[in-house]
Nucleic acid binder design. Structure first.
Length: 599
RNA sequence: GGCCCCGUGGUGUAGCGGUCCAACACGCCGCCCUGUCAAGGCGGAGAUCGGCAGUUCGAAUCUGCUCGGGGUCGCCA
């Protein structure tokens, strides 16, 4: 045994005990004849005292210690001298008076200090991740992640779900994201693909009679990274037989409420989780993952301004686009510089521009407002009457700032919803102590894909249409709504799921609409369809991002903070320097020739 | 693929055309110190300013390209 206790463990009640501790030298304070060491491990800090008089040998060794050396210290727990307590430390009432010390290992000077709230470049942190993870904040995040998994697993197990592993090496079924592929040595020219999700496998398990399955599934997608997106992430993936949509949502609500309560008891979780259709979410928030902690709903001004005489509005309206706005309450006093910043912000969200409209707080009311009360680049192009109509439709009042975006519907929605989130942040409208979950339901089953010039599955090809919409499959695919649902939290999409198609005829229609040839279907989905021929139970399920919920629970704004070994934006691991080349020998075995290195 | 931001000793920053062969803080090294806990005092080492090419009498400072990092739009069934 190297130690009797961990560094953060001893308390006043241990006074008088002789114990041995082990850990890293966090800091040394050398006073000559008296030397202090803060000894650190995952559990915390313990002050060790080396006294030249009482333990000369140990004191001498202590003088040579450096940051991050690994040591073992034996000594007596004693209360600190009066007035020498450190109320910031859980162990601050006591200290260990060392009698012996053994240096277990030396350390290079670390590239950065083991302290929270340091602003170190991400790449440096990742290159020295082993040191980065020593920071209490990072350990806390790892622990939180562990706790979340633990609670989720307990819940699933106690509700009849069977945890089953599915293969990582499987087959490419191109559709959706790009695959990560792995060459086969045994079958030259053939490749495995890493799963983007265990979708087909879990559905096959339902056909197998498993009834309820879950897994913490690693999912791989070779797409560009974001603050909340890594090329490999973990999903809490589950599937249930003999269920309808409401049954699944019930499980979700119970699970996530429990998750938050048990890992962050300080947070408030409004219940029941509100349900909102996709159409409603887009109309009210411009987004299918709205942050419901604050209002600031998005209004639609297209009809009001279509005949306004202002060229931008008229042409947007004429081409089927949208003019939408939000109201920043009490922000009429925003300076040109502030609104310019917002213009820059919406441009980075893809919009052409942003039209601010300040309504002076001096106006007694919107009705009595005059042109002098309005400050906006469009005030000389649009009649006062129309300006007032716009304000009224948006719910703006004197003292408010209207922010208007015009353009193609989708572009406007992306930009205005991002702007809403940004203003919510700037005005601190969202209560950080609230976790506001929501179910977004009734997504369209198909969305139009301009590149392919055809319909694509909004979620995936096995998602079922609503029973009442099956008839529309032939006549109007775009109008078909699916038994599709998302779980959303504070403006972040946590996961998507659906009730699956088990009706052969419906499945074939869906394939037809998406334009898969029979050969395509066989190649990609043959195994699942074959399984379905042998008695598929009604079933549905969900895939939920584990990293994202942990990120939110940890109050982090980047997913890398809750993943032990994440990748940089260029999908590189700076610690391992991955990806990297392989040897000629390996290439030969795999029958692979690199044609254009780095090209 | 597009757009935006960043790149100065180990770390984080300042400097934004000559006064900079670069400043400050922390860290590091040495000496002193028996009650500190971001210990303190004194002394010291350490970067040619991501790379390349230009502009200029002169560049860390301006321009172009390039590499790396971050954010974002597209993309992510």
């Amino acid at each position: 045994m190297y130690r009797d206790m961990t560094c953060g463990e001893p308390r006043r009640t241990d006074t008088g005990k002789t114990i041995t501790l082990a850990g890293w030298v966090h800091r040394r304070r050398d006073h000559g004849g008296l030397t202090f060491i803060d000894l650190r491990d995952f559990s915390g800090l313990m002050q060790i005292v080396f006294n030249e008089d009482s333990a000369p040998e140990a004191h001498t060794i202590a003088g040579d210690l450096r940051s991050e050396w690994v040591v073992q210290v034996k000594g007596v727990v004693q209360e600190r001298r009066a007035g020498a307590d450190n109320p910031d430390l859980p162990t601050g009432e006591i200290e260990l008076l060392a009698t012996d010390i053994t240096v277990l290992n030396r350390s290079e000077t670390p590239p950065f200090e083991i302290e929270d709230d340091q602003n170190i470049a991400d790449e440096t942190r990742l290159r020295y991740r082993f040191i980065d993870l020593r920071r209490p904040r990072m350990y806390k995040n790892l622990k939180l992640r562990h706790d979340v998994v633990q609670v989720a697993r307990d819940y699933m197990c106690s509700h009849g779900f069977l945890e089953i592993e599915t293969p990582i090496l499987l087959k490419s079924t191109p559709e959706g994201a790009r695959d990560y592929v792995v060459p086969s040595r045994v079958h030259p020219g053939s490749f495995y693909a890493l799963p983007q999700s265990p979708q087909q496998l879990k559905q096959i398990l339902m056909v197998s009679g498993v009834d309820r399955y879950f897994q913490f599934a690693h999912c791989f997608r070779d797409e560009d990274l974001r603050a909340d997106r890594q090329p490999e992430h973990t999903q809490l993936d589950f599937e249930m037989s003999f269920v309808e949509q409401d049954d699944v949502l019930e499980v979700l609500e119970e699970l996530y409420t429990k998750l938050v309560h048990e890992t962050r008891p300080d947070l408030e979780v409004p219940s029941p989780f509100p349900r909102m259709t996709y159409a409603e979410a887009i109309e009210r928030y411009g987004s299918d993952k709205p942050d419901l902690r604050f209002g600031m709903e998005v209004s639609r001004l297209t009809d009001i301004v279509s005949g306004s005489g202002f060229g931008v509005f008229e042409s947007v309206a004429a081409s089927g686009g949208a003019v939408r706005a939000i109201v920043a309450p009490g922000c009429a006093g925003y300076t040109r510089r502030q609104t310019d910043e917002l213009v820059e912000f919406v441009r980075s969200s893809g919009a052409q521009g942003l039209i601010p409209m300040h309504i002076s707080a001096d106006a007694a009311s919107l009705d009595t407002a005059t042109l002098d009360d309005i400050r906006s680049p469009i005030k000389n192009h649009v009649s006062l009457e129309t300006l007032k109509e716009m304000a009224a439709a948006s719910g703006a009042a004197p003292g408010d700032l209207m922010l208007i975006i015009a353009g193609p519907e989708r572009v406007v929605n992306v930009a205005i919803s991002n702007l809403r989130a940004e203003m919510g942040k700037r005005l601190e409208l969202a209560d950080p102590g609230v976790f506001s979950f929501a179910f977004v339901v009734d997504f369209p089953l198909f969305e139009w894909d301009d590149d392919r010039n055809g319909w694509a599955a909004m979620h995936h090809v096995f998602s079922a249409p609503r029973p009442q919409d099956v008839g529309l499959l032939d006549s109007d695919p775009g109008a078909v709504l699916g038994q599709l649902y998302d779980l959303v939290l504070n403006g972040v999409e946590l996961g998507s799921g659906s009730i699956r198609i088990v009706d052969r005829a419906v499945q074939e229609k869906v394939f037809g609409i998406i334009g898969h040839s029979p050969e395509d279907v066989e190649e990609r989905f043959g195994q699942l369809l074959r399984a379905f021929q042998y008695g598929a139970p009604p079933h549905g399920g969900m895939g939920l991002g584990l990293d994202r919920i942990v990120m939110l629970l940890a109050n982090e704004d980047n997913i890398r903070e809750v993943i032990a070994f994440p990748k940089t934006q260029a999908a590189v691991d700076p610690l391992f320097d991955a990806p990297g080349p392989i040897t000629q020998e390996q290439l030969r075995e795999l029958s692979i020739r690199v044609v254009e290195a780095g090209g």
